[in-house]
Amino acid sequence: MNTATTIKKKEKIVRRKDNWQLYLMLSPAVVLAFIFVYIPFGGIVMAFQDYKPYLGISGSKWVGWEQFKFMFEYPDSVQVFWNTLRISLLKLFFGTVSTLTFALLINEVRKKFLRSAVQTFVFLPHFLSWVVLGGIFLEILDPTNGLVNEALKVIGFDPIFFLGDNNWFVITVVASDVWKEFGYGSIVFLAALAGINPALYEAAQLDGAGRWKQTLHITLPSIVPTIAVVLTLSISQVLNVGFDQIFNLYNPLVYGKGDIIDTFVYRMGLVDGNYSFSTAVGLFKSVVSLFLILGAYRIAYKVAGYKIF
């Protein structure tokens, strides 16, 4: 393939006569991506300005790194970085562990009917939006009438204000995210498990290895590349903690530990009108994410030959 293309390059490529139509076919996607992704890139200059809507980008005052300086000095913005990181790492850890454990356990279930029935139910929450789930969680976690607190009362505990107490809020966010995604996330691992050569297990059985030893010495090592790819790709998303989720569950009582970069950017920018400051915070997040993504893709490619294009 490689040699063929180099030869072609030397010769000059002769394309089909009507290939200009291909540009026509490509143009809607190019135009839309240009308008809605590339033009907003230009808006990034706002982060270096004191943007005023009535002056526009060309008329607003240039302030250089002021917004960024302010960002690092302003306690609220420093707080949201830590909040983002805390929630994110907790989600990463508990999410990966629960997903992997579930995949290994459901893979051991031999009854086909049970297996697909269980999968049907645990995959479902993934497809429901956080608006719907927010409505459901606000109901069942209600401090006085919610199902969960009713159950706690029955077994003799005091009711917990899950969505109104900072520490409980973080726990609730992590737990509800695990609840929503552990089933669906397991599909990647199940696909990897299905790909393991059955001969390995037969050989191990002949050698007298029990199921636990088989899991330890065959199953886990075989899916290490998949685990590595999933982990690295999740690490690249560490600053995307789930705007939808937080936004649908939080309230001013839990801004202390529950406010994350994305919700902060939204409130600062679209609610309070601090366009420049909020763009600067968003830009900082994007730049950090950029390095994380590039690094993660490089690692994923090295470890498992993972490639997107």
């Binding site: 992704v37 590339y38 907003p40 890139f41 808006g43 920018g269 366009y275 909020s278 993504i293 294009f309």
Partner: peptide
């Protein structure tokens, strides 16, 4: 690929 990995952010996109 660039369009997949990045975007101009919430505020610039909203203004556009």
């Amino acid at each position: 690929i660039v369009a997949m990995l990045f975007n101009g952010g919430m505020i610039p996109t909203y203004l556009l």
